[in-house]
Design a protein around this nucleic acid. Sequence first.
DNA 1: GGATAATGTAGAACAAGTTTCAGAGTTGAT
DNA 2: ATCAACTCTGAAACTTGTTCTACATTATCC
Lengths: 208, 208
Amino acid sequence: MTAEAKAVTTPASPPLTERQEARRRRILHASAQLAGRGGFDAVQMREVAEAAGVALGTLYRYFPSKVHLLVATMQDQLQHMHATLRKRPPAAEDPAARVAETLMRAFRALQREPHLADAMVRALTFADRSVSPEVDTVSRLTTAIILDAMGLDAPPTAEQLSAVRVIEHTWHSALITWLSGRASIAQVKIDIETVCRLIELTAPPEKA
Amino acid sequence: MTAEAKAVTTPASPPLTERQEARRRRILHASAQLAGRGGFDAVQMREVAEAAGVALGTLYRYFPSKVHLLVATMQDQLQHMHATLRKRPPAAEDPAARVAETLMRAFRALQREPHLADAMVRALTFADRSVSPEVDTVSRLTTAIILDAMGLDAPPTAEQLSAVRVIEHTWHSALITWLSGRASIAQVKIDIETVCRLIELTAPPEKA
DNA sequence: GGATAATGTAGAACAAGTTTCAGAGTTGAT
DNA sequence: ATCAACTCTGAAACTTGTTCTACATTATCC
């Protein structure tokens, strides 16, 4: 509904043939499958290749490292989630509550597949410079989801973008602490709600 | 000066002999050394063992994995930093500014050894459940640094602890985005300052 | 001081990510 | 239809974290 409805997908540098697109899809599917049970460690490149019916060398041609593969998997999952969230936008009154609601909804979705979440998030934070473009895409996707939830009328101000970035930081980091068992879901909820108060801080009341 | 001045060091389960303490120290030193140039990848267990003059098996007895080793290295470095920061506490007026100043000071310290920072932070976020206790120690240490910077008169409220946790989240995540070249130092500064405004939000003005 | 258990050493062995290579299969342009 | 260029396959090799084994050294306890 808001502005950001495009340009968040990958640029798709060289157009892939149909069979190549199918291979890519099989690989991503195998990756998510293996990650789903077993997490990061269970995604073994040889197994992914076999499950996708593809040679190891081919897998590496499509995704130059395990981290690349998992970050791409995350892109894929995030796109699904973005689409799903759009269908039933958050109901709350003010933007802060809407963002918190959206993030907690996303969080609960991840809870259903904790191993998959583990694999994707670990890959994301472990990524080095060579994966920057892909990680950046994930970041933009996340930003789009949050901005969507805010439901702004006008393009976001610099201040609001800062707040969104901080919310994203908190989201990622809270996810990690939860995945490594160092924080409960309740704790994560509190942290999300706390950081979302930054939104109120950046948006002077527009209507009484 | 504030409350938290103890119990942030490791519990030291079995008391180590002098030679063992020396070995441990040599290992941590070698780890930091190798991390200092080359980052995470440059810390190779065989090289650490050799540089520390210790057998590979011994290294693994002291630190059961590379991640354990690097997290311990981070503990070590953080303790130094905490001590240093205590010597020259931040000068600013309000707590929010003091925390922001402290974190940016820490940030600049890390900037001087970006490879070391890379190794430590990557290890920290990559750590799985088996490293939780050690990661938790790092987290408590960070919390102590922030609370110190706030310079509270009374023990922190639950609300303030939430704010501190969110600040910590932002700190870690911002560090990662900087280390992977996806954010500038200026950007990090803005994010830190933005999140620190949460402190003002949780501390009703005590004096006009 | 000597028995004994714990700790350390050297080095091989194993596991999984990554690289490499020779040959077979596809594709696209002429 | 054919040739050249690119892609895929299968398998081996290489790298680095981790484990294991057989033996030496050290610490502890009587």
